[in-house]
Design a protein around this nucleic acid. Structure first.
Length: 844
RNA sequence: GCGGGUGUGGCGGAACGGCAGACGCGCCAGACUUAGGAUCUGGUGCCUUCGGGCGUGGAGGUUCAAGUCCUCUCACCCGCACCA
């Protein structure tokens, strides 16, 4: 390896640091470009090569935009509050703050070694009181607007973590991060009324330049359903219940009603004879975990003994309870039309309930028919299709006061409190009289008190209940006394607004200056993984909309354009007993089976131990982690950067193979030799026309690829150019400065070295992006494919822009083509200038 | 089941409806060399009777021309999943 990357990497990283090369002017005359990475959670594991894939991509674009004349805001910080840190601290017997500082130091060091051009003066951490005082302020604003409230409701309780979790954090009955099981518990918790913004969150998705798949995920999560609320009277009782349905047109097909087992009316509806069965069912449903409830395939339920009156025709229908009806969606009760709803059909079949067809088009004895068709046996709906019938029945329900049209959302309010220590204290006081008051802005920050033991208390109270009276007890200015809230905010709180703090990170008077907010918002490009689709990205949009309504921000949406970088995985090796091996412990050998078939197989080096190999997420336990530090040590930061993006499209997943870094390293070596040749080369000033043309094409291609976030093909274009220059034997002197600037966003350390060697004293990061001459991207002569009946028969050389007659004459003079034309007559000629010539022929 | 996406050499991947396989890895050959995991040059989809034929998961279709557009179908990945 001919160039010393250790020396060059260190030299320029220290130059950037001392010269503050990437410092962003708060206000300036140039157009702004705010490009943001999803900031990391600083775990104890440090970074592996998968983490910086997105960071490298944004760094290239940020450097490119800066050279193109933008003021670029490209900051980095830490999502520093959270449970994993608390657990790590517990394990090591040290304080979470110490762990957080140590972890962020590691992360920062690792990021700097990659040569990422962040404005480090803007670094923030959500766990600093200078930051979270503003998180608390936003909470107060939410509270004042009635968007934060306490409620007793069934919540997701995770015993392993000792805390409740939000809906969005639970999937298949387990916590998405750790896989620990979650159970339902009735608890009083802080909630944020995200449902008040359901419609805006849904509608404004259309204005965003986000991947369609991600928008779909949010749309589905919000889950807008248009239908009707219908009131059913209970027979022989002076009471009623409401149901929600999206198919009010099938009310004439109702054969029974179902309430969720948790429904408040269940005790009242249960008739003596059914009491034992109902109570047993309710109890069993309560005990069952979410997971068990979901994996159950057969429908279960119990008849209550009571009947409801169908408002459309006065018929008595039995009321059942069943766990296929969810307590926390709609009204927790449904009317069942087995003929036209699959779930109701399954239930009706299991309990032998009647199936009444009201929409024609299917065979309702075979299964539910959910398609469209004319209504029958439905009085005034007969003959109408679904859409018409819905409209008619809703008008009828409203006229007769039996219900009304209603829109329902799948989205639930956000459970916002956690029974943990390492999070933002909630600025609330519980008074002696049982009432709750919010503290005022002047009281902030409510500092997280130091605790040596930050486990929940023995009687199950949150860790902050361990604090002494000096923190816990509060006397308000008016003399009333109370105790501080001991729940803390979830990890998502800090990341809901960090992109705003980056705009004005040191402001001690306000969370941000409105002038600066107007200057920088919205984020022009936000890059991160898809795993936050219905978590961070939904929560942050919600907060932003509240801030917009409060007049604190000037845009309706925070992240105008979103890009999801793909994940990086790595091969893992495991023997028959499940033991994992490091890549350096294994080897690939050709293995010949008894049948004589050969195939490549992996073995433990020097042994006959056969290994199974899989592509998996990088993880210490699987022995397949590759760190940026080790690859930089061997190949240099620029090679790592190039390989991160050269593996494939930035949005695609990829499998890491350190061996393949040799290719990009070779490319860098070749570039190095063009700038610092081993042997003196004569005639370096002469510019061959072909190479000049190629240079202009390269600038064009690289510019376009960076605009479109295709760094992989940009690298490929630079390789083509360098290969040509290498063939020529030298890079003409006038081109050296130009190509160095093209290379600068990708391999900034080398580019700086080249730039300095050309006599420049300022960083290449601040140089202008080279312009290309469109004239020079056009070839003089081109190779034109000639087809006969659509089949390629030859390639001719023609002047650029040649007309059909010229091209045809050359083609007909071409020996290879002549052969094919023999005995044929040309019936049609298709000529696309500079693209191709197709002669349609038939036997003469 | 519903929604979204992906299928191209030995491998990662390129291709405004117009020369399929750019670029890179790997492999083969050669050059230079105090054999080195260095560098440079050339080659490398498959079959072939050396004319050519066949090739982008599969089957049809549109078109002078299809990896690209349309219909059907198979496989895999991701998200959601009793939301009435």
């Amino acid at each position: 390896m001919s160039y010393n990357h250790h020396e060059i990497d260190a030299k320029w990283q220290s130059y950037w640091e001392t010269h503050k090369t990437f410092k962003t002017p708060a206000l300036g005359d140039r157009p702004k470009y705010y490009i943001l990475d999803m900031f990391p959670y600083p775990s104890g594991q440090g970074l592996h090569v998968g983490h910086p894939k997105g960071y490298v991509g944004t760094d290239m674009i940020a450097r490119y935009k800066r050279m193109r004349g933008f003021d670029v805001l490209h900051p980095m910080g830490w999502d520093a509050f959270g449970l994993p840190t608390e657990r790590q601290a517990n394990k090591e017997g040290i304080h979470p703050k110490v762990v957080t500082d140590r972890n962020t130091d590691t992360f920062r060091k690792q990021l700097k070694k990659i040569g990422l051009g962040y404005d480090w003066d803007r670094e923030i951490a959500t766990s600093h009181k200078d930051y979270y005082r503003w998180t608390q302020l936003i909470f107060l604003k939410l509270y004042e607007k009635g968007l934060a409230y306490q409620a007793e409701l069934p919540v997701n309780w995770c015993p392993a973590l000792g805390t409740v979790l939000a809906n969005e954090e639970v999937k298949d009955g387990v916590y998405v991060e750790t896989g620990d099981p979650v159970e339902k518990r009735l608890m009083t918790q802080w909630m944020l009324k995200i449902t008040a913004y359901a419609d805006a969150l849904l509608a404004d998705l259309d204005t965003l330049d986000w991947p369609e798949s991600l928008k779909e995920m949010q749309r589905h999560w919000i889950g807008k359903a248009e239908g009707a609320r219908v009131t059913f009277q209970i027979a022989d009782q002076d009471s009623s219940f409401d149901i929600f349905t999206t198919r009010p047109d099938t009310l004439f097909g109702c054969s029974y009603c179902v309430l969720a087992p948790e429904h408040a009316l269940v005790p009242q509806l249960t008739q003596t004879g059914q009491k034992a069965a109902v109570e047993a069912y309710v109890e069993a449903a309560a005990k069952q975990s979410e997971r068990e409830r979901m994996t159950e395939v057969k429908k279960t339920g119990v008849f209550t003994g009571s009947y409801a009156i169908n408002p459309v025709n006065g018929q008595r229908v039995p009321i059942w309870i069943a766990d296929y009806v969810l307590a926390n969606y709609g009204t927790g009760a449904v009317f069942a039309c087995p003929a036209h709803d699959e779930r109701d059909w399954d239930f009706a079949e299991a309990f032998d309930l009647p199936v009444i067809e009201v929409v024609q088009g299917g065979d309702v004895h075979e299964g539910a028919y959910t398609g469209d068709g004319p209504h029958i046996d439905s009085e005034f709906l007969n003959g109408l299709n679904i859409a018409e019938a819905k409209k008619t029945i809703i008008a009828w329900l409203e006229e007769h006061k039996h219900g009304e049209g209603q829109i329902n959302y799948r989205l639930r309010d956000w459970l916002f409190s956690r029974q943990r220590y390492w999070g933002e204290p909630i600025p609330i006081v519980h008074l002696e009289d049982g009432s709750v008051v919010a503290l005022s802005e002047q009281d902030l920050p409510i500092e997280l008190p130091h605790l040596d033991d930050f486990n929940p208390t023995a009687d199950g109270q949150p860790p902050l209940a361990r604090t002494g009276p000096e923190w816990r007890e509060v006397t308000l200015p008016d003399g009333r006394k109370g105790l501080r809230e001991t729940n803390t905010m979830p990890q998502w709180a800090g990341s809901c607004w960090y992109y705003l703090r980056f705009i004005d990170p040191q402001n001690s008077e306000a969370p941000w200056d409105p002038t600066l907010e107007k200057r920088w918002m919205p984020v022009d490009l936000y890059v991160g993984g898809t795993e936050h689709a219905t978590l961070h990205l939904l929560y942050a949009r919600f907060w932003h909309k509240v801030l917009y309504d409060l007049g604190m921000v000037s845009t309706k949406e925070p992240f105008q354009r979103l890009f999801n970088q793909g994940k990086i995985q790595a091969r893992s090796f495991r023997d028959g007993r499940g033991k994992y091996y490091y890549p350096q412990e294994v080897e690939s050998r050709t293995y010949t089976s008894a049948k004589g078939e050969t195939q490549d197989q992996w073995f433990v080096k020097g042994t006959e131990t056969l290994l199974e190999t899989r592509v998996e997420k990088m993880s210490k336990s699987k022995h397949n982690v590759v760190t940026p530090d080790e690859t930089i040590e061997e190949y240099g930061a620029d090679a790592l950067r190039l390989y991160e993006v050269f593996m494939g499209p930035l949005e695609d997943n990829a499998v890491w193979q350190t061996e393949n870094m040799a290719g990009v390293r070779r490319f860098l070596e070749r570039v190095w030799r063009l700038y610092f040749p081993e042997k003196a080369v004569a005639a370096q000033d002469e510019i061959p026309e072909d190479l000049d043309r190629l240079l202009h094409k390269t600038i064009q291609k690289v510019s376009q690829d960076l605009d479109e976030i295709h760094p992989n093909t940009a690298v490929s274009a630079m390789m083509i150019f360098v290969n040509e220059a290498t063939k020529l034997g030298y890079l003409p002197t006038p081109m050296k400065g130009v190509f160095a600037r093209v290379l600068a966003p990708f391999a900034p350390h080398l580019a700086e070295e080249f730039w300095a060697s050309l006599g420049h004293s300022e960083s290449i990061a601040l140089a202008d992006w080279p312009a290309f001459d469109p004239e020079k991207t056009i070839d003089r002569d081109i190779e034109l494919p000639v087809q006969l009946n659509g089949k390629l028969r030859g390639v001719i050389v023609a002047p650029v822009g040649a007309d059909e007659a010229t091209v045809r004459a050359i083609a007909e003079g071409n020996e290879a083509i002549q052969g094919h034309l023999e005995g044929m007559q040309i019936v049609k000629v298709i000529h696309k200038t500079d693209r191709m010539l197709n002669l349609v022929v038939k036997p003469a």
